[in-house]
């Protein structure tokens, strides 16, 4: 049951990541366009996305990633984090009850988005470092097992 749940979450994780990234990109483009700022300045927002993306790719292609893929806590947390990012992106774009939505005349609420940006970035960094720790753990454990097999 646990393994099936982890597999399902693992599949959705990739899908949710794409949506979360797209909505964040939309938010950044809308906000920076309004302020006439150069998009290059927003690079710090995308660094954690890039790091998590690399970690997700490593999940798929590196052998020690198999252990991470089976970790139910990791899969559930990843899904939840991406769901929250999507929720924030969707509310910033479509929640017309927030009156700042009308104030800037861009059919977007950049203030709500930027208020939540720090949460988004910190969660992504946490997720990336958790991935790294689990990778290293799996790597060390797999090497230990190999040595034990050789010694025996």
């Amino acid at each position: 049951m646990k393994a099936i749940l982890a597999k399902v979450c693992c599949f959705f994780k990739y899908l949710l990541f794409i949506f979360a990234f797209a909505l964040t990109l939309l938010g950044v483009i809308m906000t920076y366009k309004r302020l006439d700022k150069n998009l290059v300045e927003s690079i710090y927002i995308f660094i954690p996305f890039l790091l998590v993306f690399i970690a997700l790719i490593c999940d798929l292609f590196i052998k020690s990633g198999k252990g991470v893929r089976k970790n139910l806590l990791m899969q559930l947390t990843s899904c939840l984090v991406f769901i929250v990012i999507i929720l924030i992106g969707v509310r910033a774009k479509f929640d017309t009850n927030m009156l700042l939505y009308y104030k800037y005349g861009i059919s977007y609420n950049p203030l709500y988005f930027s208020d939540n940006l720090s949460f988004i970035l910190s969660m992504l960094y946490f997720l990336f470092f958790a991935h790294i720790f689990l990778f290293v753990k799996e790597l060390v454990e797999s090497k230990g097992k190999k040595k034990e097999v050789v010694n025996s």
Binding site: L73, M74, T77, L80, V81, I83, V84, L87, I88, N116, F119, S122, M123, F126, L127, F129, A130, H131, F133, L134, V136, K137, V140
Partner: peptide, 20 residues
Amino acid sequence: LSLLASSLLGLCLLISGFLI
């Protein structure tokens, strides 16, 4: 390492739960 990873994931769960 496992403890560190779980702590970070716990923090993530806490923040995302609060935000939801």
